[in-house]
Simulated assay, not measured.
Amino acid sequence: MSVSAHDEAGEDPGFWIVLSLAIACGVTVANIYYAQPLIGPISETFHLDVAASGLIVTIIQLGYVLGLIFLAPLGDLVENRMLILTTVGAVIVSLAISSFAPNVSLFIAASLLLGLTATATQMLIPIAAHLTPENKRGQVVGTVMSGLLFGILLARPVSTLIAGAFGWRGVYVLSAVAMIGVFTMLSFTLPRRKPQHAMNYAGLIRSLWDILLTTPPLQRRTAYHAMIFGAFSLFWTAIPLILQQPPFSLSHVALSLFLLSGAAGAFVAPIAGRLADKGYGDALTFGAIFMVAAGFVLVWIGGGSSLWLLVLAGIILDAGVQMNMLVGQRTIYSLAAHIRSRVNALYLGLFFVGGAIGSALSGFAVSHGGHVSVALVGLCFPAITLILFGLELFRRKS
């Protein structure tokens, strides 16, 4: 059955399709996060200094932004199943190149391609929204997002453990194998969907600017999450660097356990989705801003001596990030169905710019003040978000 048929009948997509979408999202999106705790050993291999090491993650995220702008909108233009399978195949190729890159130039090029093609994840989430009737959309998207969030949060501990046993190149090899499994699974479970459209690719890309300018809910939610995601990227790129230095000097296993703690935040997604369906979006947004800020306050207090405070900071911060993202996606998926892939691409692409900025600042913050600088820079992100959200509430009352 096509997705468009689901939309017309208002049917439920079913357990196995939702599960396969969640698994595919998680395994695919993990590829843009594996490098975060590995920038130390990757930098050693290619002789990069600490201040420049954050650029490895930044290149992947910038590739992801480009993919969201130039590839993900194709979900509104071409048959979705073919598009997704082709993009997943390209992910496998980019992982293979990264695994055996002999120099930093080829590795960076492969990283850019990896980020570009990992946008297959953001082709899958709109399909979940298309498949689902309005009254269940937040719940189903939240379930698929749980898979994506587990992928994001488990990517770092998994890559650290694998790198400890097989080196950082082993992470990319095993990920390529996992993506072959995803390709095979989606070949059986992914429904066909042919979008109804009357434009070519050039018109599709040009329409992105018009959509952004004429869709205030998209503008607001994108601005909020760009800041929140910048905080997220800063934390998870900078803190592993701090924990590998004295006084912590964590081993690969210990660091992976720390990184695993953040996965607890993924359990918030289905709950936040249900609350968003019931109209609690503003309360969830306030809660998300507060939680992200609280995470960096804990970094300031305990970042130089207390591992447990850093664990707590990671859990609280991740939960806040997931809450804010769910509210944002629930809002933009309530917009017109025929622009859903483009709206999603704009939302993800623009907030990943915030993530790229956070990653780029991580190496500088660690090398110029350690955990205190990380906390101060990190607190700027939720502070800006609070100001923007406050302005929205003021405009509503006016």
Rank of each mutant, 00 (worst) to 15 (best):
S251R: 08
L38C: 07
V173E: 04
V29P: 11
A336C: 05
G203H: 11
Y33G: 02
L379I: 13
Q322P: 02
V253R: 08
V144S: 11
G230A: 13
A272G: 10
A198H: 15
S187W: 03
L208M: 12
V366A: 07
L190V: 10
H47A: 15
D7I: 15
A22K: 04
I97L: 15
D277N: 01
L114K: 06
S233C: 13
G10F: 10
F232P: 00
V65G: 01
F352H: 11
Y347D: 14
I271E: 02
L275K: 06
R137Y: 07
A96Q: 08
I108E: 01
N135Y: 10
L131R: 12
P13L: 11
H6Y: 12
Y34M: 09
L250A: 01
P102M: 05
H368P: 10
E44M: 06
H197L: 08
S43Y: 01
M82N: 13
E11P: 00
V343Q: 04
D76W: 00
F229T: 05
S43W: 02
F290P: 02
L275W: 06
G63R: 01
E8M: 05
P126E: 07
L112R: 02
L275C: 03
P270F: 09
A9I: 14
V88F: 03
S261F: 14
I242G: 03
L326E: 03
G314S: 15
I289M: 12
S111K: 01
W300H: 10
A263D: 11
V321L: 11
S98M: 13
L74N: 03
A52C: 02
F229Y: 09
V377S: 03
V374D: 08
T117Q: 02
A276E: 12
L116W: 09
V182G: 04
G354N: 12
W209Q: 08
V366N: 06
D210E: 14
P246G: 04
F248Q: 01
V377C: 10
A375M: 06
A276T: 10
A254E: 14
S187M: 01
Q196W: 08
L85M: 08
V297D: 11
R395K: 15
